[in-house]
Design a protein around this nucleic acid. Sequence first.
DNA 1: GAATAGGGTTGCGTTTTAAAACCAGATTCA
DNA 2: TGAATCTGGTTTTAAAACGCAACCCTATTC
Lengths: 158, 158
Amino acid sequence: MARKRFDDSNCSVARALNEVGDWWSLLVVLHAMYGTRRFVDFQKELGIARNILCDRLARLVDNEVLKKVEVGEHGSRCEYRLTEKGRDLFPIVVALRQWGDKWNPAPEQTPLDLRDRESGEPIQPITVQSADGRPLSVRDVLVKELVPKVDSAKKKAV
Amino acid sequence: MARKRFDDSNCSVARALNEVGDWWSLLVVLHAMYGTRRFVDFQKELGIARNILCDRLARLVDNEVLKKVEVGEHGSRCEYRLTEKGRDLFPIVVALRQWGDKWNPAPEQTPLDLRDRESGEPIQPITVQSADGRPLSVRDVLVKELVPKVDSAKKKAV
DNA sequence: GAATAGGGTTGCGTTTTAAAACCAGATTCA
DNA sequence: TGAATCTGGTTTTAAAACGCAACCCTATTC
């Protein structure tokens, strides 16, 4: 059977993963954030198969994470640039990087050092924060129960 | 051909995605954060095939995101609980949820309302922050260049 | 003692993925 | 001008991964 899709899930995490939750999409977005814009550069940097890259770029464009821009006067050259929606993935990518650096540090390699361009200081670890800025763990957060519009049999389907 | 793995990538984002970057793993972690612990409950809530769930749980246990705990005196019943590494995925899950709610809102449905248990106030949107707490966009952050230990041909392989 | 629940595993057919070959338009090189 | 090259793809083929249903084995419950 076909892979299960989450397009119409009532869980926004599932819907997000539906767009960027596969093995390659977030890496493509990451490289776009580094400044990569051209097909061949994504291909070389990621070592991804060309057909898969085609598919991922097209899907990201469909989902408005990237936009395809024709450059070079006569066509035949184009760029893939992040949209605002795509740039909005920045905290997710940084959080993944910090998690990876913390829990799966590469031996013999210092983690990438991300810094605030203005002050030159390292950025903070990403946390969930309360209204007044305290970091919150899973246990500090509750889901405010809403009256579901659907039948209760579906209530658990997050 | 086999799916490409990123185990030994020198990019911590790739290494993170190697552990939780497939279609199901983060949803399993999400439900674990909601309190789900038993095989059958994950299966019912997610609607995932049993063999796939087996595989994902085993992989998450291997990667120490979950730990398998035997409960019930005579075995035959066990629970999957988040480790600290697993709980540390909280900001990523919340950031994904906020991104999904912002860019792919479900029609006819109010997004989940996450609140600080202590104050009852809604949590903040997750952002990348400077040392003094200013929110930073992609463009506000730079990578401090480090002298790579590897040959320059590999330098671009993030 | 039979039925049920929990946690899997096994087969089987379908879908994705990876790799490499091939393509066609535009540009550069000789 | 004509050949080689660059760019962004599509096609082909084989190996995994996925989804489903059926089966299994160990408790526990009726």
